[in-house]
Amino acid sequence: MERKITLRVDGKERTLTVDTRTTLLDALRERLGVTSAKKGCDHGQCGACTVMVDGLRVNSCLTLAVAREGAEVVTADGLAEGDELHPVQRSFISHDAFQCGYCTPGQIISAVAMMREAEEGWPSVVSEDLDADEFPLSREEIAERMSGNLCRCAAYVNIVEAIEEVARS
């Protein structure tokens, strides 16, 4: 069953025909050639497919493309402006916060989203005072908020350092 949908992907409007079964992840990768978001598990168990949809980070592998008509989708590629990388991307490079690089775009989307979430007063399960107005990004807070993105090369220590540096500035 095919459906025509329109998405805004990394700032560009894209109209495409998808099978109703097509996930947002497969729509991006196989129909639009946007391969920044990665397929790691296809079941919401690794976070490699994380993109922002209408400003919120979500697992694109569990999102049906037809259900996102008109959505604004941002991948890690869309965070950069031309050749100018996003500060989180630059920090990941200087802290060597990745090795194979496959989970990296998802990590970076998560990192950018989570700094905003903490700033906007979204608590996490390790937040000491649930009732606080904002949640300073301690190492523990960063680690918990980034735990939906697995990294098998295990660059976690560097990922946390990379985010800490951007969060401080």
Partner: peptide, 19 residues
């Protein structure tokens, strides 16, 4: 109802909880 917040936040991941 802090137990509700804590329970929800203990589940899944941030991106899954957005969905």
């Amino acid at each position: 109802y802090p137990m509700v917040s804590q329970a929800v936040l203990a589940g899944a991941s941030f991106q899954l909880r957005n969905l």
